[in-house]
């Protein structure tokens, strides 16, 4: 159903030149693409740049009527993944360090001590807890192989199907399943 709606929006964009269709596609995927690149890049600024660039590249590709997109979601992830690789290549970043302080939720960074409302205060605590969790998990994930980490993040964090992950990573669906199970086993040994 999701895929059908994407195809409908793409159809409107390509044939009716409907800018709002592109806006809808952006709204649908900006958060997940941002999250995907954010977990792979060292800073929030870089993640924002790569996310914006992903949608721009997507538009450039869509403009050509000859180009086909079978799975828009997987297509976006694929562009994003390639841009992350390019970003690392450009900046010669050898080690990805995700600083938990740079995590920004929709409710921006919060100083728990300054919150006076009890409900806001509990939400802020939950956020800090979540960030600490994430930092710990990313630290453990960083010890895995690149392929393992990608498959785990795409599957568990972004909720992509094995078929979609296969498109993103340019592998077969069966191959992705094997990688996923090996990654889970590797994760088990790390814990």
């Amino acid at each position: 159903m999701t895929s059908l709606f994407d195809h409908y929006l793409l159809f409107r964009l390509r044939t009716k030149h409907d800018e709002q269709a592109f806006a809808s596609l952006y709204d649908r995927y900006v958060t997940s693409i941002y999250r995907f690149v954010f977990l792979k890049l060292p800073s929030k600024e870089m993640a924002e740049d790569v996310t914006a660039e992903t949608f721009l590249r997507c538009w450039q590709y869509v403009q050509n009527q000859q180009n086909t997109i079978q799975n828009f979601r997987a297509f976006l992830y694929r562009i994003a993944r390639n841009l992350v690789v390019d970003a690392y290549r450009k900046q010669a970043i050898t080690e990805k360090v995700v600083d938990p302080v740079t995590f920004h939720g929709s409710d921006t960074s919060t100083d728990v001590g300054l919150i006076t409302d009890p409900s806001d205060r509990s939400r802020g605590l939950a956020l800090i807890e979540a960030r600490a969790d994430l930092s710990l998990m990313l630290d453990r994930l960083s010890k895995l192989k690149e392929d393992y980490r990608d498959v785990l993040l795409l599957r568990l964090v972004d909720g992509l199907s094995f078929g979609d992950i296969a498109i993103v990573l340019e592998k077969t669906s069966g191959n992705v399943r094997v990688i996923y199970h090996r990654a889970m086993k590797a994760l088990d040994t790390l814990l």
């Binding site: 999250r35 954010f38 993640a47 924002e48 995590f103 929709s106 568990l156």
Partner: peptide, 15 residues
């Protein structure tokens, strides 16, 4: 916990 990152409230969302 990894799956929970998807949850907007607990997870990573852009500004």
């Amino acid at each position: 916990r990894l799956e929970a990152i998807r949850n907007i409230k607990r997870g990573i969302t852009p500004d």
